[in-house]
Amino acid sequence: MEDFLFDGWTGIAKILIAAPVIYILVVALTRVSGKRSASQMNNFDWIVTVAIGSLVASAVLSQGVAIAEAALAITALFALQYGFTLGARRWGKVERLLKARPKILLAHGEFDEAAMDAERVTRSEILAAIRESGNRRLDEVEYVILESDARFSVIARGERALDEAVLATIRRPEGAPRAPD
């Protein structure tokens, strides 16, 4: 029972060394990699973040993982994220591989049930997004879009027409109307 509460000074010493070293490394790598590593996350960013968290925990708490090994693994994940996101910026195929495309869930007051089913989004979630955007009526809304980072964008109907370029990367249902000119 004594080992359960205190397993010796070696483990305590490793934690006292590993925690600040790994913390400083993650802060430095986050700073170097830019705002993207701390921004709204798409699926790829979320996976990298979870993996880094697991490596941090292993480095600090596991006696079987050397600090240098964990530091190298964390650095490799940051480098992979940097490389893939740079590739996504430069090549559309990489972007399509890494990121889900935004999807229109509501257009011109009509819910797209197929898109909602595919994304597992309920009407109540869409209506909540509309309320959060400050719109009070469904007919005030031109589009509700599920973005690649799982946020909802609510585009209100207005005096100015929505530029087609703004909708260029969005997956639309068959026969969906284009933005008015």
Results as ranks from 00 to 15, higher is better:
1 M>Q: 09
2 E>D: 14
4 F>V: 03
4 F>S: 02
4 F>I: 00
5 L>G: 06
5 L>P: 01
5 L>M: 12
6 F>Y: 13
7 D>L: 08
8 G>Y: 00
8 G>S: 08
9 W>G: 09
10 T>V: 14
10 T>A: 14
14 K>F: 00
16 L>V: 13
19 A>H: 03
23 Y>T: 09
23 Y>S: 09
23 Y>W: 12
24 I>Y: 10
26 V>S: 00
28 A>N: 03
29 L>M: 15
34 G>I: 07
34 G>C: 05
35 K>E: 06
36 R>I: 07
36 R>T: 07
36 R>D: 04
39 S>F: 11
40 Q>C: 06
42 N>H: 04
43 N>L: 15
44 F>W: 05
45 D>M: 06
45 D>V: 03
46 W>R: 12
46 W>M: 12
47 I>V: 15
50 V>I: 15
52 I>S: 00
53 G>N: 04
54 S>I: 11
54 S>T: 15
55 L>D: 02
56 V>I: 14
56 V>H: 01
59 A>I: 01
61 L>P: 01
64 G>E: 15
65 V>T: 12
65 V>C: 02
66 A>H: 14
66 A>P: 06
70 A>Q: 01
72 L>E: 10
73 A>F: 05
75 T>W: 08
79 A>D: 07
80 L>T: 09
81 Q>D: 12
88 A>N: 05
88 A>T: 05
90 R>T: 08
90 R>I: 02
90 R>W: 11
91 W>H: 13
95 E>W: 06
95 E>C: 09
101 R>S: 13
104 I>R: 00
104 I>G: 02
104 I>Q: 00
104 I>E: 04
106 L>R: 01
109 G>N: 11
110 E>W: 05
110 E>R: 14
110 E>L: 11
110 E>F: 11
111 F>C: 05
111 F>M: 11
116 M>A: 11
117 D>T: 08
118 A>D: 14
120 R>M: 12
121 V>D: 01
123 R>A: 07
123 R>L: 07
126 I>F: 12
127 L>F: 11
129 A>L: 03
129 A>G: 10
138 L>I: 14
140 E>L: 09
141 V>K: 01
143 Y>G: 02
144 V>P: 02
145 I>W: 00
146 L>P: 03
149 D>K: 04
150 A>I: 01
150 A>D: 10
150 A>P: 00
153 S>P: 05
154 V>F: 05
155 I>R: 00
155 I>H: 04
156 A>L: 08
157 R>D: 03
157 R>L: 11
158 G>A: 09
160 R>P: 00
163 D>G: 07
166 V>I: 12
169 T>D: 15
171 R>F: 01
172 R>M: 10
178 R>M: 10
180 P>K: 11
180 P>G: 07
181 D>S: 13
